[in-house]
Every structure is written in structure tokens, then in C-alpha cells.
């Protein structure tokens, strides 16, 4: 079986600094994969290489068998890559439901001139309300992002990514900045989406939630893949504990 997302020997350097040094991993259809690593490990750079914001110097990235090399972000999104970024970036001039409906209208926004002859927004607005309900913020549909707390904005962003009918949902630190109750609730929402068949790659710092919800982990450190496998096995490895928790913490725990 070929993986839904295949990352092969991706290498990214900025000048002399190697941010990602030959990382390979797969995300299989239907799994909830956690991509973890300490600060500066290269997770976000790897994510940006997948989304097409930066171009790797070498290596390849395939989505559903299709090479993404050279494709701009919007094309990757249209091939089935749903994204939620680390820093929330709602369209501040649009209500929550309008934010999501714009994404839901991706078939209508493919080309400018085709978009010019499309007027009806009702079906997309209805779909957007369904998705807001799915992620648990239906009541906030008509509010502007400026009025919403971070936890709700993150849910709106997940709904916006889902509106693109993605094959793969790539979430960059969706739990960052949330208190533990909000984080656990959003993690549960992500798990529910995954149970419904959506493949999810979760880049996350919140180790507790990652251990709880992910079916498999890939650990990166210093731009390299350190380990991969089931969460408990991976976190049991000495080199992972050393890299992730740091020598001192491990000594203290011992």
C-alpha cells in the first residue's frame, strides 16, 4: 500500500544552517500521526516544505502518489492538503461562518473569471454551519474573529481546513496556547475526525495529548528523524527521552 503522504529524504538549509537534514516519513491512509520534537527540531520547517511555503534543496514529497515539487500552496491545498497554522490567521473582516464558507466554495474559486459568474453562497454557508457544528462552535458562526477567544478560533480554523474536503489534515500546534481543558477537548475533536476516516498529521508540543490520541509518532531532533513507531515504544527510547526531555530532566527523573 502506498502512503497518503510520502516524505522522502527532505533536506532544507537556510544559508549554512541545516534546518531539516534528510527526513523521511509516511502518513498512512486513516492514521493519526504525531510529528514531535523539541523546539528548533525542524518540525515547522518540515511543515512549510510540505505546504510549499519553502522549497527543499533536495528530497521529494508526494500526496496520494502525486509529486508536490514546484507546486504553489494553493495547488497543494486543492490536491487535498488541509492546513491549520500554528498562529491562528482568520480573515478578520469576515464572520466565522464566512471564513469557513469561503473555503467550502473552493470549487467556485478555482479561477477568477469562473468565480465572477458564481453568485450563490447559500450552499457553502450551510455547509460551513455544519462544519462549525462538527468542531463544536456552531453558536459562534456569526461572530467576528476579533471577538472570539483563541480556543474557539482554533476550532474555526479546523472547520475552515475541513471545508476543503481534504485527504490529509495537517495541523501545526493546534493545542498551543490553550489551557488543558480546552486542549483535551480539541484533541478529542481531532480524534473524532480521525475516527470518521480523515488522515491527520499533528505537529504538537503538548506531549500528554499527543501520547493520548496519536496512533504513531515520528520524532525529529536537530533536523533529523530520531525515531518512529507507537507512542509508548518511541517515548521509551533513551535517545528520544534525552532529546525531547533533555538530559537534566532525565537525570532528575532517574
Amino acid at each position: 500500500m502506498t502512503a497518503l503522504l510520502e516524505v522522502r529524504e527532505v533536506r532544507v538549509h537556510f544559508g549554512g544552517v541545516v534546518a531539516v537534514d534528510g527526513v523521511s516519513f509516511d502518513a498512512e491512509q486513516g492514521e493519526l500521526l504525531g510529528l514531535i520534537g523539541p523546539n528548533g527540531a525542524g518540525k515547522t520547517t518540515l511543515m512549510r516544505a510540505i505546504t510549499g511555503v519553502i522549497r527543499p534543496q533536495s528530497g521529494s514529497i508526494r500526496l496520494a502518489g502525486r509529486d508536490l515539487a514546484g507546486l504553489p500552496t494553493h495547488r497543494r491545498v486543492r490536491l487535498g492538503l488541509g492546513l491549520s497554522q500554528q498562529l491562528v490567521s482568520p480573515f478578520t473582516t469576515m464572520t466565522a461562518v464566512q471564513n469557513v464558507a469561503l473555503a467550502a466554495g473552493y470549487r467556485k474559486t478555482g479561477a477568477p473569471l469562473a468565480a465572477l459568474i458564481q453568485m450563490r453562497r447559500a450552499p457553502e454557508l450551510a455547509r460551513a454551519r455544519e462544519l462549525l457544528e462538527l468542531v463544536g462552535v456552531r453558536g459562534l458562526a456569526d461572530r467576528l474573529p476579533g471577538d472570539l477567544p483563541l480556543g474557539d478560533l482554533k476550532r474555526v480554523e479546523v472547520a475552515r481546513a475541513l471545508a476543503l474536503d481534504p485527504k490529509l489534515l495537517l495541523l501545526d500546534e493546534p493545542l498551543a496556547g490553550l489551557n488543558h481543558i480546552e486542549a483535551a477537548a480539541l484533541a478529542d475533536t481531532i480524534t473524532a475526525l480521525n475516527r470518521d476516516g480523515l488522515t491527520v498529521v499533528l505537529i504538537e508540543h503538548n506531549l500528554g495529548e499527543v501520547m493520548r490520541i496519536c496512533s504513531r509518532l515520528v520524532v525529529v531532533d536537530n533536523g533529523r528523524k530520531l525515531a518512529e513507531g507507537p507512542p509508548r515504544e518511541v517515548m521509551g527510547e533513551a535517545k528520544v527521552r534525552a532529546a525531547y526531555l533533555g538530559e537534566e530532566v532525565e537525570d532528575a527523573a532517574a
Partner: peptide, 8 residues
């Protein structure tokens, strides 16, 4: 952000 909702 427009790019990540598929806008060219």
C-alpha cells in the same frame, strides 16, 4: 491565508 484556502 487566502492561499491556504486554495485561492490562486
Amino acid at each position: 491565508t487566502a492561499r491556504i484556502v486554495g485561492i490562486n
